[in-house]
Nucleic acid binder design. Structure first.
Lengths: 192, 192
DNA sequence: GTCTATAGATCGATAGAC
DNA sequence: GTCTATCGATCTATAGAC
């Protein structure tokens, strides 16, 4: 038979625990409470325990961004609209800064060594998709890369500062500033 | 008698452990190995264990920034030079992005509830000192605040992305971009 | 697929000798 | 001020019944 919870639901619930308490700060007791699954079930679905759960969570997050951010950036014929769509999705996903970026947080310490390839792949994918979109809008190759990386820095920094100061306005301002910078640059290229 | 290690040395060593493994990821065994102090000594100097150590580490970091960043920003008669001094100190402290910001990392999860006032106080102090410096350079009150916060976002985001991509160039570029933005703004005000 | 029970390891914290 | 020994709690992981 199937799970009591969908696997995706369980993975999402575990992801929220990791977001809130970190990898080492999350125990099987908490995972059982959040998912309704005992240790037997958890080890049945994730034979290597928290390591497998982490990989599933990271894949889950990556897949969401693939569908809602990266792929739209690749597919949209209109760079300016694609940018707007990206910022709207990002703002929604991170709940205006109240939710943190699991991959960014995990990259800091915690479980670095085991998952840093996947974390780097996620960010690299994002940067490349955004840079390619800007490139299609007429921005030079080098500037597209620099701008895309600057946007990533703004998003991650906005999340950190919004949490540190408990002020979601910081995150929203960061997104708005990034969006404005990109639009100004795209408009300048469009009128040439 | 005194400690085998200076208290400041022990605190610094514990801070490096927290940076690398996080709060929950650092055990007393690791702390003993790093400081040469057994549990008896550790609890003698930090009666409440890791909580007291964390407070000492955060105070130690805050004090370093007070002396090397905040106070120079307050005291310097030349805003442009003060800005350069700040970025040089920041770049040196974070070792071009290879070292992470303990307060930024702790603000994400880990030990949020216990220390968020101190973390917020640290960042607020920094933002205010930087904004006041820009204000003295002729930048408007609102823009000074916005620019100062944008710089903080750039620094924190630069650290996250540099770690995630294992590329210190990302951090150095972020600092350079922030510095350039501030100088351009200060120069514009100086010529008016 | 799910549960309970439990082993085995590690951790945080304390007590007491030096 | 420092150490060792140790307790009790918690955690990861496994075994076995349903």
């Amino acid at each position: 038979m199937t799970l009591r919870m969908t696997r995706a639901e369980a993975v999402a619930a575990i992801g929220e625990l990791f977001r809130e308490h970190g990898y080492h700060g999350t125990s099987y007791g908490q995972i059982t409470a959040a998912t309704g699954l005992g240790k037997g079930s958890l080890y049945n679905h994730f034979p290597n325990g928290k390591e497998d759960m982490t990989r599933a969570v990271l894949d889950h997050v990556h897949a969401w961004f693939e569908d809602n951010v990266f792929e739209p950036l690749d597919a949209s014929p209109n760079p300016s609209e694609a940018i707007d769509h990206m910022f709207a999705a990002v703002r929604s996903y991170f709940r205006s800064g109240r939710r943190l970026c699991l991959l960014g947080a995990f990259s800091l310490y915690d479980v670095r060594t085991s998952f840093d390839e996947e974390i780097a792949a996620y960010f690299t994918r994002w940067v490349k998709a955004l840079a390619a979109c800007l490139r299609r809008g007429g921005v030079s190759l080098k500037e597209s890369r620099d701008l895309a990386m600057a946007v990533m820095v703004d998003i991650q920094g906005g999340l950190v500062m919004a949490h540190a100061l408990d002020d979601s306005g910081v995150f929203k301002s960061s997104l708005a500033r990034s969006a404005q910078t990109l639009h100004i640059r795209l408009d300048a290229c469009a009128t040439v």
